[in-house]
Design a protein around this nucleic acid. Structure first.
Length: 484
RNA sequence: GGCGCGGUAGCCAAGUGGUAAGGCAAAGGUCUGCAAAACCUUUAUACGUCGGUUCAAUUCCGACCCGCGCCUCCA
């Protein structure tokens, strides 16, 4: 099967056929750097990270561009509130964004252009739009005229007249039409400014993405993505101005991810119901965050609750516990023949990659991949429980395949011990316990057990359990502990 | 008001024109001094409601109800 992508433009899943295979150009709208990013941003970032990685895995040569919007009303407002320069604000939050990206284990895009570094390109496009009659000067501002092209609204399925009957369009007396949007804004005193044929000013919001995408990917390119909320007006306006400028189709496949909800409502800055990425990373391993996000399909709404996060954490702990068991068996001797359960497992393992690919080819169905993996986890535990020797080729094939899946999802493929000890560290830190302390308790408990003082032994165990530490009495008489 | 998306077990969540992946939670069992972990079994007469098409629909079509999103900055 080959890759099919749901295209917002056609509202259908379509076979993905790049313009110039094996090259693929992908542009994703980044963030406006005026504050810390929240989980909603993380979802978009992680989804497109996975899409980028999967396309590469499929053998495409992907040029991935994601911008920083580093000049904007909100940045200026923030700077004024804090009494600092506007670019101090943007610099600060670009750094924060980069830290969050690393925290979430995102791969860096091929290019991460900033609006302010592309003013020349922006001015050039605006000039051309004015020349061609798609844009006009009103006062010291330049506006794009939405009625100059008949297909305005094709991405979001909206019609200009219907939009205007809605009462929420901003009234700006300088505009010819309420839906016209600014390409270039004149600057007020104290605001950032660049020279232009229309006087000092700064770019409007939408034009930067047109300029930066076409600069790096060409006039027509393959994939353009972002959150659902960007489809209108941002992406719609990008299409209008870009196609008016180039006379060619702009992006061919439009991908939009769904929101992260809290109490069935969209997580957003304005509602104040958000969790920043850095807050979440204080309590959760990055892979837990990735698993939480990837366990739902990217277009579905995703509910953030503490319980759902804990579920993801627990699933991942179980996963790595099993992976740890499997690795132990990897080195063991080879058995010539496979028994019933083991043969069944071997069968599943052997087509795991194909199953993974089939799920991903179907519009990046990461939720299905998770199901696949947890199903296999049960199979493994079953075999591991019943046999002390496992055919090592199955172990190696499995670990190898998981490694490949991990390259795409950024989950499931870490060293199990590293992951589990991280989890241990977090629980211990929360409980204020040191490993040595736990060992001491275990010894005390085993002493009590030896003397058949069960009550005393159980009291110690209960104490540790309440601190989040689980004890496990092994068949060989030793006691080990784990968390979560 | 316009446009769009979605309603699957207690919860989260895939999926299919021929009677529903996976996870969590719950119950019973194996194991254990008791536990924990792991494994086994059980847990949706059925996928919002009502119609229609069909030999057959949860899956297609229509209407309706409910939720959400966009139409203003927003991932």
């Amino acid at each position: 099967m080959s890759l099919h992508i749901y295209n917002t433009l056609t509202r259908r899943k379509e076979l993905f056929q790049p313009l110039n295979p094996p090259k693929v150009g992908m542009y994703v709208c980044g963030v406006t750097v005026y504050d810390y990013c929240h989980l909603g941003h993380a979802r978009a970032l992680i989804n497109f990270d996975v899409i980028y990685r999967y396309l590469k895995r499929k053998g495409f040569q992907v040029t991935y561009v994601r911008n920083y919007t580093d000049v904007d009303d909100k940045i200026i407002k923030r700077a004024q509130e804090e009494g600092i320069a506007w670019n101090e604000v943007s610099e600060k939050y670009i750094r924060a964004f980069d830290e969050d990206m690393d925290g979430l284990k995102l791969e860096r895009p091929t290019f991460q252009p900033r609006a302010t570094e592309n003013i020349g390109e922006i001015v050039k496009i605006v000039e051309s739009l004015v020349e061609k009659g798609f844009a006009y000067k009103a006062g010291s501002d330049i506006f794009y005229s939405v009625r100059k092209k008949s297909d305005y609204g094709k991405l979001s399925g909206k019609k200009i007249d219907e939009l205007e009957s809605g009462a929420r369009v901003e009234i700006h007396e300088a505009k010819n039409d309420p839906l016209d949007f600014s390409l270039w804004k004149s600057s007020k005193p104290g605001e950032p400014l660049w020279n232009s044929p229309w006087g000092d000013g700064r770019p409007g919001w939408h034009i930067e993405c047109s300029a930066m995408s076409m600069k790096h990917l060409g006039l027509t390119f393959d994939i353009h993505g972002g959150g659902r909320d960007l489809a209108f007006p941002h992406h719609e306006n990008e299409i209008a101005q870009s196609e008016a400028y180039s006379g060619k189709p702009f992006a061919r496949y439009w991908i939009h991810n769904g929101f992260v909800n809290i109490n069935a409502e969209k997580m957003s800055k304005s509602l104040g119901n958000f969790m920043t990425i850095r807050e979440i990373l204080k309590s959760y391993h990055p892979e837990v965050v990735r698993l939480f996000i990837l366990s739902a399909h990217y277009r579905s709404p995703l509910d953030y609750t503490e319980k759902n996060m804990q579920d993801a954490r627990q699933s991942l702990s179980r996963w790595y516990t099993t992976m740890s068991r499997i690795r132990e068996h990897c080195g063991k001797e080879k058995k010539p023949k496979l028994g019933g359960e083991e043969a069944k497992l071997g069968e599943k393992v052997s087509h795991l990659y194909a199953d993974f690919e089939e799920a991903m080819d179907d519009d990046f169905n990461t939720a299905q991949v998770c199901g696949l993996l947890f199903d296999l986890m049960r199979e493994w535990n079953k075999v591991l429980d019943s046999s002390s020797t496992i055919c090592s080729s199955i172990c190696h094939l499995f670990v190898d395949t998981i490694g490949q899946i991990n390259e795409v999802l950024g989950v499931f493929g870490s060293d199990p011990e590293t992951y589990l000890s991280f989890e241990r560290g977090q629980v211990l830190k929360a409980a204020g316990l040191a490993p040595e302390e736990i060992e001491k308790r275990i010894q005390a408990r085993n002493e009590a057990r030896k003397n058949r003082k069960w009550e005393e032994a159980d009291a110690i165990r209960k104490e540790l359990t309440e601190a989040g530490v689980q004890l496990k009495d092994n068949p060989d008489g030793t006691t080990t502990w784990s968390v979560g």
